[in-house]
Design a protein around this nucleic acid. Sequence first.
DNA 1: CCAGGGCAAGAGCACTGCTCTCGTTTGTGT
DNA 2: ACACAAACGAGAGCAGTGCTCTTGCCCTGG
Lengths: 237, 237
Amino acid sequence: MSTAHGARARARIEVTAAIKDEARRQLAAEGAARLSLRAVARELGMVSSALYRYFPSRDDLLTALIIDAYDSLGERAEAAHEPAADPFRRWIAVCEAVRGWALDHPHEYALIYGSPVPGYTAPDTTVPAAARVGLLLIGIARDAHRGSGLAGPSLPSELRPEAERIAADLAPDLPPEAVTALVAAWAQLYGLVGFELFGQFHRVVEDREPFFRHAVGRLARGVGLVPGPTEGAAPGR
Amino acid sequence: MSTAHGARARARIEVTAAIKDEARRQLAAEGAARLSLRAVARELGMVSSALYRYFPSRDDLLTALIIDAYDSLGERAEAAHEPAADPFRRWIAVCEAVRGWALDHPHEYALIYGSPVPGYTAPDTTVPAAARVGLLLIGIARDAHRGSGLAGPSLPSELRPEAERIAADLAPDLPPEAVTALVAAWAQLYGLVGFELFGQFHRVVEDREPFFRHAVGRLARGVGLVPGPTEGAAPGR
DNA sequence: CCAGGGCAAGAGCACTGCTCTCGTTTGTGT
DNA sequence: ACACAAACGAGAGCAGTGCTCTTGCCCTGG
């Protein structure tokens, strides 16, 4: 039939979604470590054991939330992408999207970029979702390289083989200098976001948005991206 | 007596240290979230309630471990300092000390720089210990500034007031450009360390030591530090 | 239509952090 | 030297946790 084994399957999907929603709510309120299966079930008016029909363990629930979080972040970053704009501006936009998402979902950010939950190792299922932002940044660098080229800093000889390996893996069409700088910038971006989010900037950096914008702009320059003619501190030509 | 009110006090100190040691052992084995007061007590051959005579709550135990971790990191960084060397080399040394400590104590690193334990907010007691590495980096920048000066990147006008405020707070004798770059580099350093430690570099960066050295070298340049005459592959500009 | 499988419920196990009470030990002021 | 108070370890107990197992209900596919 059209609803072949549909009624049941649909109910299952709906309950699964309801569980994840409630879990996310508790995540935002309490944090990952205090996420309680029983509390989720209680709030949903079911008994805790019934929940195990949908998620075989607490860790599986966490995995689902992690993938959703990566995807949510990836979507937000991709939405801010604007492939028409110049690469420098796109880089800033993506970085700001990452920061904005992190500020909006601090506990989910902590879930994916904070300390790993002990005893829990993320399955490979999470990899594609986790890679989205990185791929976006690589794409921006690639466009810039196709355009005006990418001026990477010279590499010390001890790093050259590894840089070439990384570049071959990630973006064979880009110079190893740029890919290395890109990977470093990628990590450093999350250093900036994490410090703001986890309170390390408390009483140090107060007006954080311009600080962040400036910092990721310098990150972009480190990769070889240069601000467009209408941008940057230099007066318009 | 010579041991005035000593016997008891000394026993207290010893038991407190034993508790922290065992807690640290469990931290390394299981992670902060799985740190169990009962398990610590069990391993020490005492009953769980007795442990509350030494730490009024699990959070207080965590706080003690956090302060110890900050101090341990700070000591290691300070030990690597070598005030005689030139600032660029000292910067690299401190950064590598931070990374080395993090690799040696991943769970303690996660405790202080990873996602905050939910429901737990670090008391102000932790601040001085937490500031040690930052102060070290500021000191290096100061020495460099006293020497050959610090060439900071120009700041956008939107950031200037905040940059001046930060500089006035942290290092009034340094140019705001340099202090801003320093704070950003400080955060970015922990982005690099965290990504390596938390597995984000898995199958991306393999030969991590030269990668890290190169990245923190570029961080140093961003602050205005330049490699000494015997250092750096790039011809100084 | 009715057997079989998905489902919720409940009891139960081994944990957790934390509190309270109970004697005992220990240090100190008089 | 002695009594008093503070500090201490042990144990029971409370409320909560993740997870398992068994029991039945009810919906659905053949």
